[in-house]
Design a binder for these strands. Structure first.
Lengths: 241, 241
DNA sequence: CGGAAAAGGTCTGAACAGTTTCCAAACGTG
DNA sequence: CACGTTTGGAAACTGTTCAGACCTTTTCCG
């Protein structure tokens, strides 16, 4: 006799998603894949980074070593040394079969898309509703322009723009949540086939969103971001057949 | 010479907020304070709960022991035994000085309010946009009715309703995020002075939100939830003077 | 009545993670 | 060129956490 559990209790989800080492690796990958540190840039010194991540330097070093062996990072010693980003993962569209990937995620894919659909439009509206410092405004514009680049790194530039918008909301929690959900979807988004028409559409939406934020128009910012999320969600769901 | 760090990197936030024991305690407190397990109810068996939380039974037992000594829980052995909730924290309005509490939170208060302002309206809209099972519908109505109870436990019933709405969104991530932000604000919300007029207003909003969700009207659900969040945010910010 | 079942209570050795301390390499400056 | 500084590299020791087996208490049911 099987007892039917209707969970409904979000509180009893796992206390941690993996051990310290794994989470640290994930964070570094996040920073690289989402373009928070660009190729050629240097990570903060180990001691500093370990402190920010509230992780022992040993654990951080293990994580760095793993990514070094995977070819993402490179460490140089000495006064002008440090750990540098060498490349930011497989190029766009070169990811392993997207359909398989999507199927493996199962219901987690729907969950991530729903979460994103709640977060990003809300973040855009919040950003539009508050006065922005000049630095934030120019950062938004810079990310927008960069995201139009049709050469390599499209995925990274897209993430950076979305992150910049979330950051402009002024709420660290919102920014962190957006970063998390972006990473969850990253591989899938990278696997979307590159079609001129889609890219044009996406760029146009990005522009409208940033314009609305700069103009202080929360309704429009949210509306367009909703369309934008729905668009990519549609493409991804299409992969599942 | 101070180096000016503009962080902007949400990725380098702490890898974990405390050790396994502390987080486990926090989860139990969350379940109790948010009314996910009501007074008199039994927690899942230790073995089961430990597995769900991905924590060793020893750690879970330590956490339970701590809350037992704090008077929240009570354990009984034997076949019909288990761990039971004895009370769910200080009664409404009896919390320590709200102003002090709010000041101590500092910018975290603004952050939490912003995050909530993004999450809850989005969750309500999502819930309204999807077909709900009969069980979810009746759960919403039950929580709504209970939240009108002006006797003790007002805070708990309010949390339960908000959680039920987030749950109805169908996205575990959304539900979990709402639960977290609710707990972050819990003490503050409990400290809001009890004024008839505010309660009436709040109840009316709750009703409109649930109606909109049941009617499948995302725009209204989100709009009213936004008003609702703004209302309590206003009250809380008022405490800071 | 007596055993099976279901729950909490206890112990132990191994794996994991954090702290501390020192070492080694490379660059810049006087 | 020598020294100090800034960086990564490594080892030893300490506390946390885990997995699993086993014990005790209580209730249900044949």
């Amino acid at each position: 006799m099987e007892r039917v559990e209707l969970p409904e209790v979000p509180t009893w989800r796992p206390v941690r998603g993996g051990n310290a080492f794994e989470i640290t690796v994930a964070r570094l990958v996040q920073a690289i894949r989402l373009g928070l540190v660009v190729v050629g840039e240097r990570l903060p010194p180990e001691r500093e980074l370990a402190e920010q991540l509230r992780v022992s330097r040993v654990t951080l070093r293990d994580a760095i070593a793993a990514l070094r062996e995977a070819g993402y990072l490179e460490s140089r010693r000495g006064r002008a040394g440090g750990t540098f980003v060498v490349h930011s993962g497989p190029p766009d569209g070169a990811t392993s079969d997207a359909t398989t990937l999507a199927r493996e995620m199962g219901s987690q894919l729907t969950d991530a898309l729903d979460f994103r659909r709640v977060l990003e439009p809300g973040a855009a509206a919040l950003a539009a509703a508050r006065p922005l410092a000049a630095a934030q405004r120019s950062r938004l514009v810079a990310c927008l322009v960069a995201s139009r680049d049709r050469q390599q790194n499209r995925r990274v530039h897209d993430s950076r723009l979305h992150l910049a918008i979330a950051s402009a909301s002024g709420s660290p929690s919102v920014a962190a949540a957006v970063a998390d959900v972006q990473l969850r979807l990253d591989q899938l988004l990278a696997a979307i086939p590159v079609i001129r028409r889609n890219l044009d559409h996406s760029d146009a939406q990005h522009t409208r969103i940033v314009d609305a934020i700069l103009a202080g128009d929360p309704e429009t910012a949210r509306g367009v971001m909703e369309e934008h999320c729905d668009g990519t969600a549609e493409l991804l769901r299409g992969l599942l057949g």
